[in-house]
Design a protein around this nucleic acid. Structure first.
Lengths: 214, 214
DNA sequence: ACGCAGTAGATAGTGCTACTATCCACAGCG
DNA sequence: CGCTGTGGATAGTAGCACTATCTACTGCGT
């Protein structure tokens, strides 16, 4: 198909498709002339993936490119793609050296994770994010320790087991890797929405009965 | 304290504090002269909240202002603050009319939520987000139905019950409301990090044993 | 055979966000 | 008395995700 058909099918403008081509989010089509190229179903699928990652999960273009590169890199195993994707998703833009309370919180988080017995790379960026969250709680006056996260960790571990189980089969690598990324990112966004809905639900249950319009 | 002390204590520049004052994220200090104002612990706390919401949860300034206004509005009950916060968090920037597959997905999500028996406002923006996620899954070639979210909904409901229970006590409104917001937003970010860490852990468990460095 | 919509590729411009810098008149303080 | 700091205002900046425009060309319908 031509570029305009590709754009139309994915619901974006031709200019946007060109932009994605420039930025390496989308591989170029096979040239059929000096100014003509053909795109196929794989391009359409990739384009839809890019839009889902942008619109549903809110990822930025640089992150999407890194994730796409990990998906395309045939040398990476499923587990390695996980690692790359995680590092891509967690923009590791820590500029200065962390202040002492953040450093302390991160240390406690590391100890907590070790106690859980989880197998996590020492440089996984999500460690830092969790430490930052703990430090933020303390700055806001809560005397939280790292194990306030324990129930959340149990739940997260269960959810992760579903998603890994849904993928670690005998399907071809490309399929498996894509399911993995989509599962992580799109289901993550879906869960965030469900969490808000559940909050509203539980909050309604304990709220005093709505006042009869005075 | 003076503005420079306030800025120092929160780890931001004086210019940034002025910016937040302009934007209404931070109430002005009490004037002690034509060009002098005093800030207190409440200002420092609010400033830390703003930074936590920005740095840890990644909220934008407009959202933070809306959340802060809901916190400060004494007329709002706990449950109402939840509603306001939720609507503030989910930037409802849907421009055009949704395409037919999105509309269909949203309808199915509504039916699913009704089946769960959750009490949720009909206009809760998170409904749309969940529908968008479902539509995205389908566009990517999965034949998902709304009840693929069921296990996630169960988990979300349990987590929400913890957070609501931690707040619906006899504490003063200001304290309760702030705990609520912080719980929703900061724990949400923490959970996201934990989910990634758990993914890495579960993925390591099924990965083929690491090759001995060749 | 002709002309025009469509195309590849490049470069420049736009709108938005979250600051950041500069300026002013003044004021506290050593 | 001067100099750093202040409140308040206005203007500028960097980064992002497009979007618009331009050039040179070309497939395709008539």
């Amino acid at each position: 198909m031509r570029i305009s058909e590709l754009a139309e099918a994915a619901g974006v403008s031709v200019a946007t498709v060109k932009y994605y081509l420039r930025e390496g989010l989308l591989p170029r089509g096979t040239a059929t002339g000096r100014n003509q190229a053909a795109y196929d179903e794989a391009h359409l699928h990739r384009l839809r993936l890019v839009r889902a990652l942008r619109d549903v999960a809110g990822l930025d273009i640089r992150t999407i490119r890194r994730v796409a590169e990990a998906i395309d890199d045939e040398r990476l195993s499923l587990h390695e793609v996980f690692g790359v994707a995680q590092r891509a998703l967690d923009e590791t833009d820590g500029q200065g050296p962390p202040s002492s309370d953040v450093a302390e919180a991160r240390r406690e988080v590391d100890a907590f994770l070790a106690e859980l017995g989880w197998r996590i790379a020492p440089d996984a960026p999500a460690r830092g994010l969790l430490g930052d969250a703990l430090a933020a709680l303390r700055r806001l006056g809560r005397d939280a320790r790292a194990d306030v996260f324990r129930p959340y960790a149990m739940v997260a571990n269960e959810m992760a087991s579903w998603e890994v189980a849904a993928v670690s089969g005998d399907m071809p690598r490309a399929t498996a890797v894509e399911r993995l990324v989509v599962g992580t990112v799109i289901y993550g966004a879906a869960f965030e929405a469900l969490r808000r809905l559940a909050h509203e639900n539980r909050s309604a249950l304990v709220a005093p009965a709505a006042e009869p319009t005075t």
